[in-house]
């Protein structure tokens, strides 16, 4: 049986792992390669590296970091941040990344999704969507949540699927950093209306939140950062708890 995935996210800035609370006030949580190895041996199913400053500062993702991770880590990983061209993706995949995640560049030029999935296959194209509820409507935001767009979350998610995304990484900005749980209502709607895997992101604070996002939010995978980086939740304990609640996990 296919299992639900637990994905620690390593937000990278200047080669170090950081985690923002509501995307600001960054705290340092260590060396990304070292952390990645620890996570891989402690039961993480996958890793995501997001170069969070990339879009804003127009920096390219650190290819050396990708090479180091690929050399030392034996589980799959996704790289995101500032990716806007076929050449970017080609470089990252050649360095050993399994998937790339695109966000702002897909909103600016949606054809990029078609081009990337056409060239590399949809299995390695993750589209990240950051959204926030404004007057009862989920609106897509860009640049780490700083820029509001006209796009409706659900419309955009469907378009993204149609254009060839293999997976959607949905971050609720209302939940991110709050530790109050994932945006399960929106997640459940995404998971029901789309036929590609949905990764839940934003709001993890305790083990029950993960149980809820799989059961109520119908998520295929759950992503979190600080609860793992600061050892508030151990991944193997979390997975045992998920299994006790009849959620299939790899243990």
């Amino acid at each position: 049986m296919l299992t639900k995935r637990i994905i620690p996210c390593l937000d990278i800035k200047n080669g170090r792992t950081v985690k923002g609370v509501n995307f600001v006030n960054l705290r340092d949580a260590g060396d990304p390669v070292k952390l990645a190895k620890i996570y891989a041996s402690n039961g993480a199913d996958e890793l995501v590296f997001l170069d969070i400053s990339a879009t804003e500062e127009r920096r390219k993702t650190l290819t050396k970091l990708v090479l180091d991770v690929a050399a030392q880590v034996n589980i799959p990983f996704t790289v995101g941040g500032g990716i806007s061209s076929i050449e970017d993706v080609d470089t990252l995949l050649k360095c050993g990344a399994d998937k790339v995640s695109i966000n702002s560049s897909a909103v600016k030029r949606p054809e990029l999704i078609n081009e990337l999935s056409g060239k590399f296959g949809n299995q390695c194209i993750v589209v990240a969507i950051d959204a926030k509820k404004i007057n009862e409507h989920w609106k897509v935001h860009l640049v780490g949540g700083k820029v509001l767009t006209d796009l409706d979350l659900f419309e955009w998610a469907k378009e993204v699927e149609k254009r060839g995304a293999g997976e959607i990484l949905f971050t609720s900005m209302d939940n991110d950093g709050t530790k109050d749980g994932f945006a399960n209502e929106a997640l459940s709607r995404l998971s029901t209306e789309l036929n590609i895997p949905i990764i839940a992101s934003g709001g993890a604070g305790n083990k029950q939140h993960f149980i809820d996002t799989f059961k109520i939010g119908k998520a295929d995978a759950a992503l979190a950062a600080s609860v793992f980086h600061f050892k508030e939740i151990e991944i193997n304990d979390l997975k045992q708890e998920l299994r006790n609640n009849n959620i299939p996990v790899r243990l």
Partner: peptide, 29 residues
Amino acid sequence: VPQIGWNQISNLKSPLFKDISENEYMYLV
């Protein structure tokens, strides 16, 4: 679709699976 993630393998019938247990998890996309 795609199936993404860890699924179990069973009915293992080859020296390729020496010392790998039934229902072991492998990563697929």
